[in-house]
Design a protein around this nucleic acid. Structure first.
Lengths: 139, 139
DNA sequence: TATTGTTATACTCTATAACTATA
DNA sequence: TATAGTTATAGAGTATAACAATA
């Protein structure tokens, strides 16, 4: 019922906190190495998977739609993203990465060494166990 | 050498991304439930462990010292933190939580359900395995 | 001279509310 | 009338540079 009171759980909680801190640090660093903010890098990563309407970006970022306007504005000013009309609904604007945007998203992904490097220290079997435990943690 | 190219590692990397996203979401939510921003909650948590000079807070937050001034200003205006002189060096100001700050930090810690709830689904042995794998990942 | 904390400035992200153009 | 996107506004975090007080 209250596993957070036992020392083992506390230890795991703190380790997760460390993983989160490290992940963020390296993510921001990777973004900065391409002159992008974290939010810009996140959006560019999304769009590299699939061109996306403004509204949907806001949902995926869990932020207000008005914020997306600015983020896309800045990515567009950098030539990494463009707004396209949606033929089926003229209210909608679909954000899509330009060629350079796709390239930058690829580099960004490669420079995210976080998981690659530390996971190299784990065997295949251990990585499989980690995957299963994380999956169960996330429900 | 390049474990990120194999599907298993990719899966683990994505799971870690999910853990990070969920951790942040719940952290911000817990902070907001006490009318605090994430940065304010983080600093209050630090100070609850130990009163800390401004400079040191900046180092622990990995940000510029000038930012800490504003964060402490806002916590001080809320009566959660106070600045104390350091008798041994009159340049230094030590930020310390007030009584209410200590109380708020405690409530904050309790409302961080993130790890408590999902970890309840793992057995003690599984939590121990998870702890060991995370420790090795973090080097 | 070097260090601590602050101020001033500028940019980005964030939420809220009001607006427009479509539907 | 409802929805998609934008604009306007205000608050918070961030970095940079310059400054006062102290070491």
């Amino acid at each position: 019922m209250t596993p957070h009171t036992d020392p083992l759980t506390t230890e795991v909680v703190e380790l997760i906190g460390s993983v989160v801190a490290r992940y963020h640090e390296e993510y921001e660093q990777a973004a900065a190495s391409h002159q992008l903010t974290g939010a810009q890098a996140r959006v560019l990563g999304l769009l590299a998977l699939q061109p996306t309407p403004m509204r949907r970006i806001a949902i995926q970022l869990k932020c207000e739609p008005s914020n997306v306007t600015g983020i896309i504005d800045r990515l567009e000013a950098r030539g990494l993203v463009e707004r396209r009309p949606d033929p089926s609904d003229r209210r909608v604007k679909v954000a899509a990465p330009t060629e350079e945007g796709v390239r930058t998203a690829g580099l960004l992904r490669e420079s995210l060494d976080f998981a690659r490097e530390p996971l190299a220290g784990l065997s295949v079997a251990e990585r499989a166990v980690l995957r299963d435990l994380l999956q169960r943690m996330l429900g």
